[in-house]
Simulated assay, not measured.
Amino acid sequence: MPKPTFFRLAETKRKRLIKAAYDEFSRASFQDASISNIIKEAGIPRGSFYQYFEDKSDIFFLLAGSHSVFD
């Protein structure tokens, strides 16, 4: 589950991060997916990622559990 700070992000930044994660998990298996690739594509620092999520499983399950993450 994302941390509360994720839900306080500006919509454009939140969508950019979700799209970066979606792209990474579409490209690679969960095991091979890289937080480094996600943050690079999203244009955020690694520390910011961990302010929003505990680990990559948090963002993976956000994507897997929602049909409207891009809305």
Rank of each mutant, 00 (worst) to 15 (best):
S34P: 07
K19E: 08
A28N: 15
D71A: 12
K3W: 12
F60L: 04
S29P: 05
F60P: 02
F49S: 06
R14F: 00
Y50L: 06
E41C: 04
E54G: 02
A28L: 06
E41A: 12
F49I: 03
F6R: 00
K40S: 09
Q31N: 14
I18D: 01
R27M: 14
A64E: 08
E11R: 15
Q31I: 10
I39R: 00
R16D: 13
T5F: 04
H67R: 14
Y52M: 12
S68V: 03
M1L: 06
Y22I: 09
K15F: 05
L17Y: 06
F70C: 10
F60G: 10
D58G: 11
I44N: 04
S48N: 10
E41V: 15
P45K: 11
F7T: 11
L17E: 02
L9S: 06
K56E: 00
S29C: 05
D55M: 09
G47I: 02
I35T: 09
F7A: 07
Y52K: 09
A28S: 13
L9I: 10
S48V: 02
Y52P: 03
D58F: 03
F25A: 11
D58N: 07
K15D: 09
P4Q: 12
R14W: 06
F6G: 07
L17H: 05
S29E: 11
S48C: 08
R16S: 14
P2D: 04
F7Q: 07
R46M: 15
R8Y: 03
D58W: 08
K13W: 04
K13L: 13
I38F: 08
P4V: 07
F49V: 05
Y50Q: 02
K40N: 02
S34C: 01
I44P: 03
N37V: 05
E54Y: 09
D55T: 14
E11L: 13
D71K: 14
F30T: 06
F30C: 11
Q51Y: 06
G65N: 06
S57R: 01
P4G: 01
R14Q: 12
I18M: 12
M1T: 11
A33S: 13
E24W: 00
P45G: 13
S34D: 10
S48H: 08
Y22Q: 11
Q31R: 13
R16W: 01
K56D: 04
S68R: 11
E24C: 03
I35C: 03
I18H: 01
E11G: 06
D71W: 06
S68H: 13
K40T: 15
D32C: 08
Y22H: 07
Y52N: 07
R46G: 00
A20H: 07
A64F: 12
G43I: 04
P2R: 09
A10M: 03
Q31H: 08
P45T: 06
D32Y: 09
F7N: 11
F53M: 01
S57A: 13
S66N: 13
F70K: 12
K13N: 07
A33N: 06
R46N: 12
T5L: 13
